[in-house]
């Protein structure tokens, strides 16, 4: 008997006794028994046959169309690399200074503490760049993150959350995110355990609302 015939009969739920006998005696088929059994269970699980909404395709296309293009991380200022080593060293301190935002921010938002951190308050200032947003957080009243955890700053729109980065000691923190506040208007800070989970926890500490 052909192995595929016996296996297909088993999957269809209409295997005859000779076909079942083959599956039990053929070493190749016995090796595949677990996969056959699991697959038949998959096919018979009603949840396997549930269809997504007809509108889901359009929602996927729209979401990608409305989301800003992914951007590469900011590169070092190219002009520094073109300088000679001595000149670059002499300008090092200036470069460090120049790396910080020095012009007036494009926007500024208050970010109060939630019930998890009622004493916390802060201001977020943002500089809109061609490939994302540079943000500076000035925070007061938020204690350093406990061992094994970090604060994480998020830009969100509805249920879509983009991390701008993590920090342990809240004070004046500078971060970068590859999206704009116009597209992701909610700004908030969570306390995150250090683990592999990249989604925001429920520990909402500060929130612009």
């Amino acid at each position: 008997m052909n192995c595929d015939d016996a296996r297909s009969a088993f999957l269809s739920g209409a295997a005859s006794q000779p076909e079942l006998d083959h599956l039990g005696s053929c070493s190749d088929c016995r090796n595949e028994w677990d996969a056959l059994e699991t697959s038949r269970q998959v096919l018979e699980d009603q949840s396997f046959w549930v269809e997504p909404s007809p509108t889901l395709e359009d929602r996927v296309v729209a979401m990608i169309g409305e989301t800003p293009q992914p951007v590469a991380p900011p590169r070092p200022r190219r002009w520094l690399w073109t300088l000679g080593g001595g000149a670059a060293a002499a300008l090092g301190a200036i470069a460090v200074w120049a790396g910080l935002p020095s012009t007036a921010p494009d926007w500024e938002v208050a970010i109060p503490g939630t019930s998890e951190a009622p004493d916390a308050s802060g201001v977020v200032r943002g500089w809109n760049e061609w490939n994302g947003t540079r943000v500076v957080l000035d925070i007061e009243g938020l204690p350093p993150a406990p061992d094994g955890s970090l604060y994480e700053f998020w830009f969100s729109r509805d249920e879509l959350h983009i991390s701008a980065g993590t920090f342990a000691a809240p004070d004046s923190v500078e971060l970068w995110v590859g999206v704009s506040k116009a597209d992701f208007p909610r700004l908030w800070i969570t306390l995150e355990p250090v683990d592999e989970d990249e989604s925001p926890s429920g520990n909402n500490m500060m929130d612009s609302g």
Partner: peptide, 10 residues
């Protein structure tokens, strides 16, 4: 159809 699935499983 089931033969095709059986082949896929192998």
């Amino acid at each position: 159809a089931h033969r095709r699935l059986a082949t896929l499983l192998s």
